[in-house]
Design a protein around this nucleic acid. Structure first.
Lengths: 210, 210
DNA sequence: CGGGCGCTTGACGGCAATCAATCGTAGTGG
DNA sequence: CCACTACGATTGATTGCCGTCAAGCGCCCG
């Protein structure tokens, strides 16, 4: 982990104002499960996933975080999940103490509120995704979600098949099969296994719907 | 829906101070999906479930709320899910306006923060439950959760099999089979279909574990 | 006593997990 | 530059769990 100097700063945001930019390499751990949570992070570039290791090897994924997202807040004092870089990342980090000193309690509260609300909405969306029964619906929803997060037609997948599978509650083989299926029905097109393009948005929405 | 007079009030809580007690009969709707959310509720007695109706008939359950819980807050202005009484209920209701006038912004913010944090933790727990693959693990986790929420050994099930099934992402038949299975292995004992007792807590924890 | 409703049980089929092999791409060393 | 390796993704074959359909049971209430 190294520090970088040339980072765009948005002075309207508390973290952006006092945060320290840090770089993480792919697969590097940002914090571990169980560690004390005294830093708050804001994504500048790259993608991060939070996950928890379970005794039997299953690995539920909490969430993915993209540029602009704030993460690392916990309602308790310690991290219930670990955070890892899915790709090379640049992340601003700021301590609660420093933020209190720099911006005051009010601004810190607002920041925490926004991040928590976002986490809650994300968790709810994830829940409805998991309750959807069929594997194809889950995969379709996931791809659609990515596609509408970025406006573009061609979307880069930040994560590999295993991470998708963990997030969707499926196996990597099933995810792969569903993707193949979506492709052969002409709904999406994978240029490479990490990059796809929506060919028939309406059909994709129908498959994702419910 | 009728109003009741003789309700215990806890004056340390904003809702308790100015809330209006309301009674709901079993299966009565407290608010509907899509309605404007300007009231906040606090359970006094009974149980409430929030759920969303989907086009194909599936009905994901958001959460169950028990005495003491606060619900009805939304991060947007309207209710994304409906709330219904699972049993006869008494609930305190207070409008945001009235709470602002009576307690001030600070106290309302604190209230919303606590309720939102609770919702988030609950959603995360629900997520790990759904990612658990096997039906028996889900049912075991659910029963264990209920058992540790109430300290007692004998637990009353507030909801029917259908609500359990919706919450667990299973069918009512599968839930029933798993319960039978748990019973015949001596882990729990159902005195009636709405009331059970944990016979071997350690075994139940093992089954729920992961 | 009879009807209705919710729960349980049974038989069967389908979908996704598992096991296993192959393919494709990227990275490495000759 | 090209083999060779390694790893992730895909595809195939088979198993097994859970959903579906259907019947039976128990309980409450009229």
């Amino acid at each position: 982990m190294t520090c970088s100097e040339t980072i765009l700063r948005d002075d309207h945001d508390l973290i952006s104002r006092i945060g320290v930019p840090m770089s993480f390499a792919k697969d590097e751990e940002i914090y571990g499960q169980g560690e004390r949570a005294d830093l708050v992070y804001r994504m500048i570039s790259g993608t991060v996933r939070t996950s928890r290791f379970m005794a039997d090897g299953r690995r539920p994924i909490g969430d993915f975080y993209y540029p602009g997202d704030v993460f690392g807040l916990e309602t308790t004092g310690s991290h219930s999940m670990a955070a890892e870089a899915l790709s090379d990342c640049v992340i601003l980090a700021a301590s609660r103490q420093a933020m209190l000193a720099a911006g005051g309690e009010e601004e810190l509260k607002d920041l925490m509120w926004d991040a928590t609300v976002r986490d809650l909405e994300s968790a709810r969306e994830h829940l409805t995704l998991l309750v959807r029964k069929s594997a194809s619906e889950r995969v379709a929803s996931f791809l659609l979600g990515l596609a509408q997060r970025r406006g573009e037609t061609a979307v880069e997948l930040a994560m590999g098949r295993q991470d998708m599978a963990d997030y969707l509650g499926l196996t990597i083989e099933t995810v792969s099969r569903m993707i193949t299926q979506l492709q052969s029905s002409g709904v999406v097109e994978f240029e490479s296994c990490r990059r796809f393009r929506v060919r028939d948005r309406e059909a994709l929405e129908d498959l994702a719907a419910a």
